[in-house]
Structure formats: structure tokens, C-alpha cells
């Protein structure tokens, strides 16, 4: 198993002691193509976990499985609320056939059994997209309010108080606007709250998408290449934002990234994929020095060149 071989001192790892997400033997096949092959890793609570790898390594597929957009062919994706559940508890829920169950520490969810919108609303996993998916014709404030749809409604549809415009609804809506404002302050876009999201510059759109995901109050934030297309200054601002999210919101972050400066600077834990399999797993320093990673990815001077070589091989 790739997972075992990478880290001999497994038990001492922070992410193993307090995981938020356990990926077990995840595989995803599209017809005959194996995009992800038996990948297992753990993301630690309150940590930044980075998934890296050359193009076509299956990173986004892993993400889409975690966030419910793809149904994995095989494998288990266990997410823990409150604190880690024991293996027995996870097996218990797996055997029960349900998508979630209570655990000693809180609750656990088997993400592969949930449809995408329930991964977000029940399991509270939020995500962003590689090609930004903002509601471009709606204002920035509206974007952040749509993100709070679930907390503003009962059963995700209507709110009786809203139909009658009761004071309780007005309070609730005010709370939602305040929350949006909090995040707008955080990403420095308060002045543009009434502008359409599609009018923002690229870097701001990236950060707005993260803010929108955070407005759903997630326990795990999944970011698909958040630094892609950013200039160094924007990239630094992004690092700042991600670190402050981790610091102040206790949210755990899982990210896919090509930009090694982002990965090495902010992540606590790096998982390296190649051809759909895991080839390394450890702290940034360990991964940087891993011979297989160097050979396949980091060793080549020019990152683009490495990518090109891998793509040509695929």
C-alpha cells in the first residue's frame, strides 16, 4: 500500500491522531480509464492538507469524490464532526448502510453515500472550483447570501417567517448580511458589495469564491487550485487569508495546488499523487526530500516541463 510505505512513524502524526477526513482505498474509474487508483490518506483537523501532483494525476477527481460530485467506484470517505470517531464506529456506520451516524465525539459522515448538495449541507464540506464558479450576474453581497441559503431556510426551501416578513426573519436576514460583511471585510471587498461578481478582477473573484464557501460555515474547506492565475502579490494575500481562516475559524483546509510557494508555505501535510496513485505523504519537508517526488515532479528545474513530460507519458 502506498499509504503505509510513505511514513514509518505513522502513529506520531498529528493528522493521524486527530483526523477530520479519512480517505480509504478510494478508486474512481471512467469506463476503462482509472483516474484514481486505491488512494488512502488522512486530512488532519485544523490543518492545511495539500494534494499535489502533475496534471492528470487525479487530484480534481479525488476532490470531486470528496465533495460528492462524483460517486467513487470503490472506497470510503469518512468525515468526522466534533472529533475523530473510532474505527469501530466507522465500520458500524458502514455496515448500517446509512450515510451518517453518531459517534462518541460528535458525528461521522460517509461522503461517498451523500449526494453533492448534502455533502455541503449535512457534512458541511465546502468547496471552490478550478474555473471560478461565481454567480456572475448577481452582486457580491447576493453571492454571499445565496451561500447562507441553508441557514436561512427550514429544510432548504422556504422560510415561513420570510413569506410574512416577520421581525424574526428580518433579524435573521440582518444576521446573514452581517456575516457576509464580515467576510467582505476579510477579503477587502466591502466597497464593492453592490457590484456584480462578474465585474471583479480575477484575483478578487478567487477570494470571493473562498469567502462564499466560508459563508456556509464548513468544517472542511476544499480549494481547487486557489492560487492558479494569481500574481505574487495576490498569491501572498491568499496565503494570508487561508492562514487566518485556519487560525480564526478552526476550519480544516484541503487544497489542490500547483504553486509550490503556496504549498510549502502554508500546508502542514502534503499528499503527492501521480497517475492516480499516491506516491508520497508527509510534511512539506519530507515530501520535498522524497526521492520519488523529486524524480517525478520537483526534481526537474522547470515545473512546466515536468508537467509536460508527465502529460506526454499519460
Amino acid at each position: 500500500m502506498a499509504g503505509e510505505s510513505a511514513s514509518p512513524a505513522r502513529e506520531s502524526r498529528a493528522w493521524d491522531r486527530n483526523p477530520i477526513l479519512k480517505v480509504d482505498h478510494l478508486s474512481m474509474r471512467f469506463g476503462g480509464l482509472v483516474a484514481v487508483n486505491d488512494v488512502s490518506f488522512v486530512a488532519g483537523r485544523g490543518e492545511v492538507t495539500a494534494v499535489i501532483g502533475p496534471n492528470g494525476a487525479g487530484k480534481t477527481t479525488v476532490f470531486n469524490c470528496i465533495t460528492g460530485f462524483y460517486k467513487p467506484s470503490t472506497g470510503r470517505l469518512a468525515l468526522f464532526h466534533g472529533g475523530p470517531a473510532t474505527d469501530a464506529e466507522v465500520d458500524g456506520v458502514t455496515a448500517s448502510g446509512l450515510a451518517w451516524g453518531k459517534s462518541e465525539a460528535g458525528a461521522l459522515y460517509l461522503l461517498e453515500r451523500l449526494p453533492d448538495h448534502k455533502v455541503a449541507s449535512w457534512a458541511r464540506v465546502a468547496r471552490t472550483f478550478q474555473n471560478i464558479r461565481l454567480f456572475s450576474g448577481m452582486t457580491i453581497l447576493e453571492n454571499l447570501l445565496v451561500a447562507q441559503h441553508m441557514s436561512l431556510t427550514t429544510s432548504g426551501l422556504l422560510n415561513p417567517a420570510a413569506i410574512l416578513n416577520l421581525p424574526s426573519w428580518q433579524r435573521k436576514q440582518k444576521g446573514a448580511v452581517d456575516r457576509a460583511l464580515y467576510w467582505l471585510n476579510k477579503i477587502g471587498l466591502v466597497d464593492r458589495a453592490d457590484d456584480p461578481a462578474g465585474d471583479l478582477p480575477y484575483g478578487d473573484q478567487r477570494r470571493l469564491e473562498i469567502a462564499r464557501a466560508m459563508c456556509t460555515d464548513p468544517v472542511l474547506l476544499c480549494l481547487d487550485e486557489p492560487a492558479a492565475g494569481l500574481n505574487p502579490r495576490e498569491s501572498a494575500a491568499l496565503n494570508e487569508l487561508l492562514l487566518s481562516i485556519r487560525r480564526e475559524h478552526q476550519a480544516s483546509i484541503l487544497l489542490i495546488e500547483h504553486d509550490m510557494s503556496v504549498v510549502m508555505e502554508i500546508s502542514d501535510h502534503v499528499v503527492v499523487l501521480e497517475y492516480g496513485s499516491k506516491i508520497a505523504d508527509g510534511t512539506p519537508d519530507e515530501v520535498r526530500n522524497d526521492p520519488r517526488v523529486i524524480a517525478s515532479y520537483l526534481g526537474v528545474e522547470d515545473e512546466e516541463e515536468a508537467v509536460a513530460v508527465v502529460e506526454a507519458g499519460a
Binding site: 448538495h117 455541503a120 472550483f129 448577481m138 447576493e142 451561500a147 441559503h149 432548504g156 422560510n159 462564499r212
Partner: peptide, 27 residues
Amino acid sequence: MPVGRAWEALREDEIACRSLGINTTLT
């Protein structure tokens, strides 16, 4: 109301809606 905003969000980007927990079929 939230449901109306969800409709418009659905028109803008259905996949993003689902990633925010909105049940698009119901909406």
C-alpha cells in the same frame, strides 16, 4: 427570499449551487 435568490443562483451556476448545499432538484 432565499428561495428566489436560489432560483437566480441556479440560473447563474447550478454546480456552484450544489456546492453550497442547495438542493437543486427541489429548487
